[in-house]
Amino acid sequence: MSVPKSVVKIKRDGIEYISSVDYTQYTIKELIRAALRDCGKLYCNRFRQAYYRIFKRKKGRVGKYTGYWVRSKKDVPDLLVGIKKNAFYGGFQEFGSSKTTRLGLMIGTAQDNISNFADIQAQYLGALNQDDPNVPANEEEYEGGADD
């Protein structure tokens, strides 16, 4: 989606109406998408810290293959976090099985960081009060892990 024109001028009966609705909607969507990306990155980093605290070493695929996906082709972007398909045992560690106990690290990480996610989103959406918010570069479906 390209950046729409910032101002649309409509003339009726000698009166000029100026509308910037399209640009404002684009800006809001891009700020939401950028906030979700930062929330996903924070989540993955905190999950890895909790995972490696339990298992004491950086071995295995669950911590390594934790990722987040921002789906921005919808009307309202959303964030998905999870374990990529390369980490087969991640689901068993999260939910438990007949032979392993339930760890619940993903759910615990999300619950422990709700206030941090709210702060990140408030910081980005607070940019709407500025005259010209700095909108990040356009990226389609952003898929990323976090910093290693």
Rank of each mutant, 00 (worst) to 15 (best):
R33F: 02
K73D: 13
P133C: 05
L128D: 07
F47N: 01
I83P: 01
R61S: 10
R57G: 03
D13Q: 14
T24C: 07
K58G: 04
M106S: 05
R12L: 11
S97Y: 04
D78N: 13
E94W: 07
A110D: 13
S98D: 13
I28C: 07
R53Q: 14
E139H: 11
Q111T: 06
R61A: 13
G126L: 07
K59M: 04
D78G: 07
V21E: 12
A118P: 04
E143S: 12
R33E: 11
G126N: 13
G63I: 02
Q121A: 15
K73M: 10
D38L: 05
Y17A: 00
A146C: 14
G14H: 04
G108A: 02
A127W: 14
L125G: 08
Y89G: 06
D112R: 13
E143A: 07
T109D: 11
N45W: 05
R61T: 07
Y142E: 06
I54G: 04
S98N: 14
K11F: 09
Q93L: 15
R61Q: 14
I32R: 11
D131S: 13
I54E: 15
C39A: 08
Y17F: 05
R48P: 01
A127Q: 15
R48I: 00
G82K: 03
Q25E: 14
L125T: 03
I54Q: 13
E30H: 05
V81M: 12
L31A: 03
C39R: 12
K41V: 03
K9E: 14
D22Y: 01
A146D: 15
Q111F: 08
G14W: 01
K11E: 15
Y89W: 11
P4C: 02
Q25C: 10
K84Y: 07
L105V: 03
A34N: 06
D132N: 14
R53Y: 06
K58R: 14
A34Y: 04
I54L: 14
K58A: 08
S98E: 15
K56W: 00
G91N: 08
R12E: 15
L105N: 05
I83D: 02
Y43V: 00
G14Q: 01
K56A: 03
P133V: 01
L125C: 09
N86F: 11
Y65E: 13
E30N: 10
G104M: 05
G60N: 01
M1S: 12
K73F: 11
L125S: 11
D148T: 06
C44L: 08
Q121C: 13
R46G: 02
S97K: 03
L80C: 06
E94D: 11
Y51A: 01
G91A: 02
W69Y: 14
E30F: 00
V62N: 08
T101Y: 09
V62Q: 03
G145A: 11
D148L: 08
I120R: 12
E141F: 06
W69T: 10
F117R: 06
T100E: 12
